[in-house]
């Protein structure tokens, strides 16, 4: 399996399409982080923002600064990295006639699929590490703030979360590369599913929420109506890897985020609860944030594992004659 991983890593890092996608991710992330850090610097200059202590650094990744926050950008476009690495993993070997050659060597069939998946994950891990380290350095220079140890740990958690998220798309692309003989079909199917999950599913969630929980007065919805609508949105986002990643990353990188919308919080909280919320406005500890994001992380991890298992089973059960 080592030979396959080595070969795949060399292929990935020298492939033009991967370099293009990574360059694009780096450039746009830099732009987002740069604008965010400029905004932070301006705010800090004014002073009187002591309540932000211990979470300024992470705002480089979550603040908009007039552009996409880095987290949102990674949620929407990070999948491209996984898709580009996996959409032709198997059908390319099949098309160039190297699949039967590899399988006739003394290796198990699952070693090939595992090797390809691991090589893709290693590539993503290296790329994400480089991206986050460079963004952090940009933040240090641009915003002039140093991270606290807790912020460092939260960033590490975000790296792992991103790896699991991109790993899902990598697994999905590999499944398509096994199912579809044509590389073009596999690329199209991967892209179509990415567009549907990342862009259309949130819209679909909102539309569904409006149908399921209609408001009597559209201008002045009640808290209960808002809460119901929010609940439908939350349920829909739980079946979307992009939604899960967005929610988990917001909780992880923003200590004040409690994992649910303000409307939902206001609707469900009594007067006493609101007072308690205000009391804890200073932010959650890392442990509390992690506990809050466990459901999203577990579901996302489950999705990622499911795509890998699907790839594994599809490939192992395929007759070699059809390969």
């Amino acid at each position: 399996m080592k030979a396959i991983i080595r070969k795949e890593l060399a292929d990935h890092f020298s492939s033009t399409r991967f370099l293009i996608i990574v360059s694009l991710l780096f450039m746009i992330s830099f732009l987002g982080a740069h604008l965010a850090s400029q905004g932070i610097r301006e705010v800090l200059k004014v002073g009187g923002h002591e309540y932000l202590a211990g979470r300024v650094f992470l705002m480089i990744f979550t603040a908009t600064g007039g552009f996409f926050p880095v987290t949102v950008f990674l949620a929407l476009f990070g999948p491209l990295m996984g898709l580009v690495l996996g959409f032709d993993a198997i059908n390319r070997e099949r098309a160039q006639g190297t699949l039967s050659k590899i399988l006739s060597q003394p290796i198990y069939r699952d070693e090939l699929i595992l090797g390809k998946y691991l090589a893709g994950l290693i590539t993503v891990a290296i790329t994400l590490s480089a991206l986050l380290i460079l963004l952090a350095a940009l933040g240090l220079i641009g915003a002039g703030v140093t991270p606290t140890p807790e912020e460092g740990l939260r960033l590490l958690g975000f790296w792992f979360l991103s790896l699991v998220y991109v790993g899902f798309w990598l697994g999905l692309a590999i499944v398509f590369s096994i199912i579809f003989r044509s590389v073009a079909t596999s690329a199209l199917a991967s892209a179509a599913l990415w567009i549907m999950i990342a862009f259309f599913l949130p819209v679909l969630g909102q539309a569904l929420a409006q149908v399921v929980t209609p408001t009597l007065d559209a201008q002045r919805p009640t808290y209960q109506e808002l809460a119901d609508r929010d609940l439908v949105n939350q349920v829909v986002s739980k079946v979307s890897p992009t939604g899960l990643f967005s929610q988990a990353s917001q909780v992880l990188l923003d200590p004040t985020n409690r994992g649910s919308s303000q409307a939902f919080q206001m609707a469900v909280s009594s007067r006493v609860n609101r007072l308690l919320l205000n009391h804890f406005q200073g932010g959650l500890s890392l442990g509390q944030s992690l506990a809050l994001m466990v459901p999203e992380l577990l579901i996302l991890f489950g999705f990622t594992l499911a795509t890998f298992i699907a790839a594994y089973l599809t490939f192992v059960r395929q007759e070699v004659r059809s390969i």
């Binding site: 160039q96 006639g97 190297t98 699949l99 039967s100 006739s104 003394p106 290796i107």
Partner: peptide, 20 residues
């Protein structure tokens, strides 16, 4: 024992492919 067989048997398929 597929691995033991494959380690001692060479196979040249009909359309042998290479990394170009």
């Amino acid at each position: 024992a597929p691995l033991a067989v494959k380690s001692q048997v060479g196979y040249l398929p009909e359309n042998m492919g290479f990394y170009q």
